[in-house]
């Protein structure tokens, strides 16, 4: 491929967990500190490929699969004015990805267009600016965000055209408290949930006519600052996967990282269904060596029924949410701690990032 830089794959080496198999490794020699990693579909000339997107503070790069588990960098966008904070993937969209830029919090969201049929170019443009607290890319090229100006909160959904430009906008009814995370309700295009700063779950109807706030339900006091990752509706109940970065250790559940909670939207009552706890340190709970003890969950991702997170020990853990068990643990490598853990578009492939910008792809 013209312009692509071939990379040598690193094969399975000294992994302690057999359920993760190293497939390949990407290293952007021009980038320093890894900020985020994601996957996206890239299509040209009638074919579609799953590509990797990596972000450093000042650039976003697109990586294309080559033969034999090798990857080549196809394009890099330079974003030098404001630091990149996160990649905002649009789940079922081809050739289009969004990024959030800012200092301590998101100040603007831009779309990056990978290929334009009109002029074969790589473009970028502003979608939204403001004090943005949360953003999520939804199915069908939609983007939802919450932002605050003084006491006023705006929750807005924007539909993007294939060329990236904003097509339609819709304001959703905001709750009183700040929305900190969003999740689509799988299989229900018009349903959206969010978690708020006072630990509530909010349900909206987003049908492009109304942005009604349908229900607000409290998560409970035992697990403060919950973040929603995924939601499913089944048998009249709303099941939400929550992470608990600030949860305390309890006798019944250890230190919870993720919980599956069932809500009855009619009565606003909830019940914990399954709890996935942090793995114990290698020395065990009673005599935990700080260098190997997985004390806290730092950041993570959920796809289907699999969850992954970077822990304070520098390890990456993987859980089966239906079993409520940790099924794989990737210890820090010789090059240092892991800082990023993301699923590709399926939970069969884990993207693990190191601080120096190296991204490892593991089959799970």
């Amino acid at each position: 491929t013209a312009g692509a830089e071939p990379l040598t794959p690193v094969l399975l080496d000294d992994l302690r967990e057999e359920s993760l198999q190293l497939l390949s490794k990407l290293k952007d020699s021009s980038s320093s500190c890894a900020v985020d990693v994601s996957t996206m579909w890239w299509g040209a000339a009638g074919s579609r490929e799953l590509c990797v997107v990596t972000a450093s503070e000042s650039s976003v790069s697109l990586w294309k699969p080559l033969a034999s588990d090798r990857w080549g960098k196809l394009h890099t966008w330079q974003l030098r004015e404001i630091p990149v904070i996160q990649i905002v993937p649009l789940p079922d969209t081809c050739n289009l990805v969004c990024v959030a830029l800012g200092e301590l919090e998101i100040g603007e969201i831009r779309w990056l267009l990978l290929y334009s049929s009109e002029n074969d170019s790589f473009e970028q443009s502003l979608v939204k600016a403001g004090n943005i607290k949360a953003v999520l890319g939804l199915q069908e090229r939609r983007l939802v965000s919450s932002s605050r100006t003084g006491q006023e909160q705006q929750v807005e959904m924007v539909s993007l055209a294939e060329t990236g430009r904003s097509k339609d906008g819709q304001t959703l009814m905001p709750p009183e408290e700040t929305v900190l995370a969003f999740a689509e309700v799988e299989g229900m295009r018009e349903a959206l949930v969010g978690t708020t700063a006072v630990n509530s779950i909010v349900v909206w109807s987003v049908n492009l006519k109304t942005g009604q706030l349908l229900k607000k339900m409290h998560v409970g006091y035992s697990y403060p600052a919950s973040i929603c990752h995924r939601a499913y509706s089944d048998s009249g109940l709303l099941f939400v996967v929550l992470s608990h970065p600030h949860a305390k250790e309890s006798e019944s559940c250890g230190t919870p990282a993720f919980r599956l909670v069932a809500f009855n939207p009619r009565t606003a009552r909830s019940a914990g269904v399954l709890c996935s706890s942090l793995p114990l340190g290698q020395a065990g709970r009673q005599r935990c060596d700080p260098s190997v003890c997985h004390r806290r969950y730092l950041e993570g991702d959920v796809q289907d029924t699999s969850a992954t997170a970077v822990l304070t020990s520098g390890a990456i853990a993987v859980w089966d949410l239906l079993l409520g068990q940790c099924t794989a643990l990737l210890p820090p490598g010789p090059q240092g701690s892991w800082v990023l853990a993301r699923w590709a578009t399926t939970s069969a492939c884990l993207l693990a990032g190191q601080r120096d910008g190296t991204v490892c792809l593991y089959r799970y």
């Binding site: 229900m188 018009e190 349903a191 349900v203 109807s205 109304t210 009604q212 706030l213 349908l214 229900k215 509706s233 048998s235 009249g236 109940l237 709303l238 069932a262 809500f263 009855n264 939207p265 009619r266 009565t267 009552r269 909830s270 019940a271 914990g272 269904v273």
Partner: peptide
């Protein structure tokens, strides 16, 4: 609280809440 304590369940909760909510 267990799932059996969540009160009466409606399979059409989304449609019902949408109809009841102020526009």
């Amino acid at each position: 609280c267990s799932v059996s304590d969540l009160g009466p369940i409606s399979l059409n909760w989304f449609e019902e809440l949408s109809a009841e909510a102020p526009p």
